[in-house]
Simulated scan of single mutants.
Amino acid sequence: MNRQHRQPRHHVIVLGAGYAGLTAALRLARNPAVSVTLVDPSDRFTERVRLHQLAAGQPDVTHPLSSFLRGTGIRHVAARAVDLDPAAREVRTDDGRTLSYDRLVYALGSVTDTRIAAEEGTVGERAYTAESAAELGKRLLDGPGRLAVVGGGLTGVELASEIAESHPAWDVRLLTAGRVGAGLSANGRAHLRRALAAMRVRVMEGERITSVDEVDADVTVWSASLRPLTGLAGAAGLELDGEGRIVVDRMLRSATDPAVYVAGDAAATSLRMACATAMPTGAHAAASVLADLESGPARPLRFRYVVQCISLGRNDGLIQPVHRDDSPLRSVVTGRPAAFVKEQVVRSTVRILRVAASRARAR
């Protein structure tokens, strides 16, 4: 329907323009009865799943936000939300604006958790994270030395392998408290070890690091865990779970305030924090908001895992098929075929967003 013939009756604010927030905003914008305001300080969308490539020297992993929003009717407020008032249904930003909403989608995501990493200050002052990948890439050009990646999860593995492949003169170690690739099958872990060994990455398991000072390296990359960006929600009185995620029902509606919906890493679901879960929950949160505004039936979130995709440099990878609960199957795909599949999966995220933008323009 032509938006000139039907004025929006409801206003929805989306906080955050990552995978979940941008997906939610574009899905909401397809409904001509809804006006959407997207609040995010950046004017670019970052492919977070490529940050390890940025650290290894890829020039850019971002896209102009305008390329997704142009013609959709979505208003982008390039500011940071600093206060949320659920009672008044208002959001205040760091540039002094007060924005009112009928419904709000909270999709501020997560960042690398650095709070327990240093005895004084934060790890960000003495180590790099995925979020500072551009600065890490510049540091690696200064010359070889000893580099330690702390954290044996998938992000840590991708960072270690990408850096070791692109900067072979650096002595790269991967430190982890448990087993590297703990969520993989035995076949998956075996390939992971072979690939890292081929790149001369030394894997050191059983290394419980609680401070950057404990790491003997010229450069430390902290990748131990993620934390949700829910300080704004907590200060507003929204209920958080033990991990700091916003408690929601099966429709992704806040347990505290029915006008607030949550998508991505900030939502207290059983899903792991990942791009693979952010986009589906963003779409579902938008669908729940629309059902709410139209007094229609809302469906509970249903999600099943299919695979875990890991890049091991540019020429190797690991595709781990999983059960619906994310537990691994025995079989794996490795080598160049896996690297190709991983790349196609990563590219598909931007393709999906561009298709969503096209549909919003055609409303």
Results as ranks from 00 to 15, higher is better:
V82F: 01
T129C: 05
R89K: 12
A117D: 10
D102G: 06
F68Q: 01
D60H: 06
V77H: 15
G121C: 08
E120H: 15
A117L: 05
G73P: 03
R103L: 02
V77K: 07
T129I: 02
T93Q: 03
E120D: 14
D102L: 06
T122M: 11
D95H: 10
I74H: 01
R80S: 15
A79W: 01
Q58S: 09
A87H: 13
R75H: 14
L108K: 00
R97N: 09
T112D: 10
L104Q: 08
H63F: 09
S67L: 03
V111G: 02
L69G: 13
E90S: 13
G109T: 02
E120T: 14
D83L: 06
V111Q: 07
G121I: 06
I116F: 13
D102S: 05
A78V: 01
T98I: 13
E119K: 06
V91G: 06
G73Q: 06
T112R: 00
V77R: 13
G96D: 10
F68I: 00
R97S: 15
D102Y: 08
A118N: 13
L69S: 12
R70P: 00
A107M: 00
E120Y: 12
L104I: 14
R126D: 08
R70N: 13
E119Q: 12
V82Y: 00
Y106K: 00
D83C: 04
R92M: 11
I74P: 00
T129D: 02
T122C: 14
T112E: 11
H76E: 12
F68K: 01
A88W: 06
D94M: 12
L65Y: 05
S110I: 00
V77I: 15
P64N: 03
D113G: 07
R97P: 04
T72N: 04
I74Q: 01
A81P: 03
P59W: 09
E119H: 11
R97M: 09
R103P: 01
R92E: 15
T62N: 05
R126G: 14
D95V: 09
A87K: 12
E119N: 14
R89A: 14
I116L: 11
S100F: 06
T72V: 02
R80G: 08
H63E: 14
Y106N: 00
A107C: 02
A117S: 12
A117C: 10
A127I: 10
L65C: 09
V77L: 15
R97E: 15
T62I: 00
A127W: 10
G124C: 06
A88G: 10
D113Y: 08
L69D: 11
D94G: 09
T93S: 07
V82D: 07
F68L: 05
D113C: 05
E90C: 11
E120Q: 14
T93L: 02
R75I: 08
G73D: 06
G109V: 03
V77Y: 07
V111I: 10
V105Y: 12
T112I: 10
V61F: 09
F68S: 01
L104W: 07
V91I: 15
S66E: 15
S100L: 11
Y101T: 09
